[in-house]
Amino acid sequence: MSEKAKLNVSEHAEPAAGNTQMPVSVMVVLTLLGYIGCYKVDNLNANFASNVHAPFGSPEEVASLAPSEEELVFSQGKQLYANCQGCHQPNGGGTPGTFPPLAGSEWVLGDPQRIAAVVLNGLGGEVVVSGKTYNNQMTPVGETWTDEQVAAVLTFIRKEWGNNAGRVLPEEIAQTRAKTAESGHSGPWTQETLNTTFPAE
């Protein structure tokens, strides 16, 4: 074995650590930077909200960007209208003689409680809409739909297809239910029974 291949394995001593003190200024700078950082984070953290992503900066900003409640109700109504368009058609035009139109209908644009009553309890027999006569049976949804859902679908049909009537609130649906119960009526309306409880304007 040659000398070259042998290693000098003599050991160095174990290291030791000195006791030099850290300058106080380091701690001061750390505290200062930490303070500034905390302040900045506090300013920019958007209240730790999970829905604020860059480049937006605050929950209020994001909330302002979100669609308004009215728009949301409208789009909910649009989805619910899928249950109605089989008869009233996607364009709200109805079918001559059987299913009355919703676009431009004075029933839809008039007293919200009256149209709500129709949706809640259904309607049968001959009805006159925009001067034309229709005759069929409308299915009631009052048993299964909530006030919010009825209000949403009414809001939708009152604003779609050029209709420009106001939003319907869930409270109005509740009032309609109460008024119907008070009148003692049950089952689908006819145009006459409806007119006694919810007179046309």
Binding site: S50, P67, A152
Partner: peptide
Amino acid sequence: SQVNNLSADLGGGD
């Protein structure tokens, strides 16, 4: 835990 509370709701029934 924050994400656990995130809902899939998009508003308007979506």
